[in-house]
Design a protein around this nucleic acid. Sequence first.
DNA 1: ACCTGAACACCGTTCAAGT
DNA 2: ACCTGAACACCGTTCAAGT
Lengths: 228, 228
Amino acid sequence: MAPPRDALSHDRVLQAALALADAHGLAALSMRRLGAELGVEAMSLYRHVSSKEALLDAMVDAIVCGWIDPSADAPKDWRERLGAIMHRAHAAMLARPWSVELITVRPRVGDGRLRYAETVTTALLDAGFSPQLAHHGLHIVDGTIMGFTAQQARRPTAVALGDRVQSLYEGSLVDEYPGISRTIREHHDHDEEYALMVDLVIDGLARLRDGEPPRRTGLGADYALAIS
Amino acid sequence: MAPPRDALSHDRVLQAALALADAHGLAALSMRRLGAELGVEAMSLYRHVSSKEALLDAMVDAIVCGWIDPSADAPKDWRERLGAIMHRAHAAMLARPWSVELITVRPRVGDGRLRYAETVTTALLDAGFSPQLAHHGLHIVDGTIMGFTAQQARRPTAVALGDRVQSLYEGSLVDEYPGISRTIREHHDHDEEYALMVDLVIDGLARLRDGEPPRRTGLGADYALAIS
DNA sequence: ACCTGAACACCGTTCAAGT
DNA sequence: ACCTGAACACCGTTCAAGT
């Protein structure tokens, strides 16, 4: 895009890093190669980025910023508000499959992540959730987005790698894995699946707010206080 | 444990890799260091492990094997069955925080993972779920386990790293992030939180089975077929 | 048969030196 | 002020050579 002779800047390095990961995956993103892409030695990058770790954190935050859309994040219904952000996050990550790994793993909390957390929390508080329950709700929503998307992003590669997965489709492992053998052949649309989980979680949160906690399994810690 | 002069084996390499990651984290696991730990040159490991990637995959599968407990995975109630495996997986991953990253990211499907998927699927089929819905249920359960645990494992480091997180606790960012500032100070027990999400998801699945789908948000794909 | 030393093609990062 | 070359301490992996 910009002529290679242009002065470097934090943003130009960041954009080049995103483009490199988009084009060749996260594994191809080395400081040396990123420098080459910008027509510069690797060491020049350190003038604008304190370390590769910091660069990765900046990449995460740039992506998470795309999850929120200030102009669209305040429709009347809190279910729509929450659903919108969950679908936007999901779509954004699937558009950059390499980002799932990065976002799942990097612990740095940047402004994008804070603004995302704020948006979800506010939607819940506005809907009449207690601060306590809104906090739990944020973590449940966060877990839903990340977990489902990570699992979905992993799936295509899984099929390609697993010799046994192919056997499952062919039905030759019925004895060992009867359950999966029976379910795996159905037609499955995974966008539908995500929409289903999103609504399931939002519905569960609504019930919690309305004082209708889920039926308890006898396992795990007691959460009586959490939903009071 | 075993005297260092013992012959190497796939299992001895695997156990040493797990121990090394437990003791010093995933970043410390290099073939050279792993060799040193076994009193051997790095290159000797390649006689028993075809690549580092294969070793990582073996580590994942060894861990996932611990999620299932054949003697305990068939209590009468399907909710208890499902809850048990979800809590067992959660506890196993939190006991080895470095495993979360590995399990989330590696796409290889080994026997442990297949047996885990089989256990969840069978529990759902036995409870009267359609093959279609049992398949979706597996992905929803999987996403719940991974997403929530990843997010929880990330949290302690997040607090330590983020200068702004500290500010949030101190309340000095109320103007910028009013929602989070209000919720973050509450006392939160995160084991309770996981138990809550587990029951919420199981309850939602039960409703799906019983033909009471969640209220729809107008977003995402239509999942009419998925729940038919 | 099993292990090793030297080597190859990489990493992130430092630092003194160049312009 | 900004960029670079050489260097340091690492990687995973190969391969011919040792025992």
